[in-house]
């Protein structure tokens, strides 16, 4: 699982997926640390995991269903109380539809 080059292009691609804006200098600095960390986690490739069931969760949990009855929930005023920008009962964002991005 090695042989993957951590270059500036890859860092930029991940930064876009993660929605974190980055200057060239930041991408360069991160790229160097990233390469070290990825080389380190590559250590796992030494282990034979054939036939091993992946473990996503620490306990044998099963799905929990709640009764279908209305309960208390946040009011719209509470839900909007920390909004950086709002318009009435709505969260306000820049224009999305028709945006070239």
């Amino acid at each position: 699982m090695t042989e993957k080059k951590i270059d500036n292009e890859l860092i930029r691609h991940i930064a876009l997926l993660a929605r974190i804006e980055m200057t060239d200098e930041q991408a360069d600095a991160l790229g160097r640390q990233f390469a070290d960390i990825v080389a380190y986690v590559d250590k796992l490739s030494e282990l034979d995991t054939n036939g091993i069931e992946p473990m996503a969760h620490a306990l044998d949990v099963c799905n929990v269903l709640a009764d279908d009855v209305p309960g208390e929930s946040l009011s719209s005023e509470q839900a909007l109380a920390n909004a950086p920008a709002r318009d009435g009962d709505f969260f306000k964002v820049p224009k999305v539809i028709g945006d070239s991005q």
Binding site: I14, L16, E21, I37, P94, Q101
Partner: peptide
């Protein structure tokens, strides 16, 4: 300019270096 830029810049300004590193590694 748009919603992606709003997300990306807000996150770039709001998160510190270690948090960014870990989000990037996880992504």
């Amino acid at each position: 300019g748009g919603i992606v830029e709003l997300y990306s810049r807000s996150r770039a300004e709001g998160f510190g270096d270690e948090v960014k590193r870990r989000i990037m590694l996880g992504t």
